[in-house]
Amino acid sequence: MPYGQFLGYEKGEDGIPKIVEKQAAVVRLIYKLFLEGKTPSGIAKHLTINKILTPGGKEVWQQSTVLSILKNEKYKGDAMLQKSFTVDFLTKKKKINEGEIQQYYVENSHPAIITPEVFDLVQYEIKKRKNAKGYKTGGGCFSGKIVCGECGSFYGSKVWHSTSKYRRVIWQCNSKFKNDEKCNTPPLYEDKVRAAFVEAFNSLLENKEEILEGYEVIIQVLTDTSKLDKESAKLQSELEIVTELLHKCVAKNAHSVLEQAEYEERYKALAERYEKIKNGLEGINEKRLVRSAKHESIAIFIKELEQREGLVTEFDEDLWNGTIEKVLVHSEEKIIFIFKDCMELEWNM
């Protein structure tokens, strides 16, 4: 492990990576901020402003550094060995492994800073954002939150009258002029979105107790994975049987004379069955992640709601990130706030 450029660990006396708690707290903060809705560039900005040093000891964080921390399996205690290899032992020149040599994945190779559940949730969220139409990573808290009600693309920030006293930040559909027909959804003034959110959230606070009472049953449903566990166990058993049949099929072909057309047909059928079962298991894991993501979102929302004593008087970026999943824009007057618990609130601007 390259400890000098790796946040959260140092070499222990036994040679096994040892957690550096002060740095580990930064890693956990990065994961927390991402799951609350901040973009990698927004997290980089937050860390830079708060004078937290990068893994290399620099003062300014880059989006790529944050993303590499979010994607690195070492933080959940696992290790992918031979990501790179030495191509010249005299010059010590290294190269990224692009399939030239075998890689090995080792689980629980060292103490974890992030739980596997949180790590998997982050990978799911990265994938979801990447596949979203018109998504662009930006430093502002509105990036990846405001969505065009016509084409489904995200809104991006623009600056009007940048050099005059009338300078204003507006948000506009990123695909407005890329579609066959121009979207009719309007641009939004940033200050109006802030004000509308404060009013909308305060309307929730007025029914706070009633809203919180309804979540107990929802959380029980989301955390009950017994049906998924049963499906997974069944498929896993089938996978082991098919794997054994594949091994026997190959071994028989290697040690006896078989009709190759017949062998290839049997092998192909087993391989297709193997892939089908494997895809089924991946589908179950995807459902688990969706449930976990939903549970995490509701937990964050409930926490924010419970902590609020009295009405909100001004826009709070942390509150926004902790409660808003997205905002659908339909017209200049009508937007819909969709909270992390999937509650929808139509609002007139």
Rank of each mutant, 00 (worst) to 15 (best):
Q5P: 03
F6R: 06
F6N: 07
Y9Q: 08
Y9M: 10
P17K: 04
P17D: 07
K18I: 07
K18P: 10
I19N: 06
Q23W: 01
A25S: 15
V26K: 03
R28D: 05
L29C: 03
Y31S: 04
K32P: 07
L33T: 03
A44N: 05
L47K: 03
T48H: 07
V60G: 13
W61F: 08
W61Q: 01
Q62T: 12
Q62N: 13
T65R: 02
T65I: 10
L67Q: 09
I69M: 06
K71M: 07
M80C: 08
M80D: 05
L81Q: 08
L81T: 02
L90S: 15
T91S: 15
T91Q: 04
K92W: 09
K93S: 10
K95F: 13
E100Q: 13
I101K: 01
Q102M: 11
Q103I: 14
Y105C: 09
E107T: 14
H110G: 13
P111A: 13
P111C: 09
P111K: 02
I114F: 00
P116C: 06
V118C: 00
F119L: 01
V122C: 09
Q123M: 02
Y124C: 05
K133H: 10
K136W: 00
K136D: 08
G149A: 02
E150D: 06
F154W: 02
Y155Q: 11
G156N: 07
S162R: 04
K165V: 13
R167S: 11
W171Q: 03
Q172L: 10
S175W: 07
K176V: 12
K178W: 01
D180W: 05
N184L: 15
P186M: 03
L188G: 08
E190T: 03
F197K: 01
E199A: 15
N202R: 03
S203I: 04
L205P: 12
L205F: 07
E206W: 06
E213M: 12
G214M: 07
Y215P: 12
E216M: 04
Q220N: 14
Q220W: 01
S226V: 08
L228I: 02
K230E: 14
S232V: 02
A233P: 06
A233I: 07
L235P: 12
E238I: 05
E238A: 13
L246Q: 10
C249F: 08
K252S: 15
K252W: 05
A254Q: 11
V257S: 15
Q260D: 15
A261P: 04
A261R: 05
A261E: 14
E265H: 08
R266P: 08
R266Y: 07
E275F: 10
I284P: 10
E286K: 01
K287T: 11
K287R: 04
H295P: 09
H295V: 10
F301K: 00
I302W: 02
I302H: 04
E304M: 12
G310T: 11
G310I: 05
T313I: 03
F315S: 13
D316S: 08
D316F: 06
N321P: 09
T323L: 05
I324L: 09
I324Q: 01
E325Q: 15
V327F: 07
V327T: 11
V329P: 09
H330S: 13
K334I: 15
F337Y: 05
F337K: 04
K340P: 08
D341T: 12
L345W: 00
E346D: 12
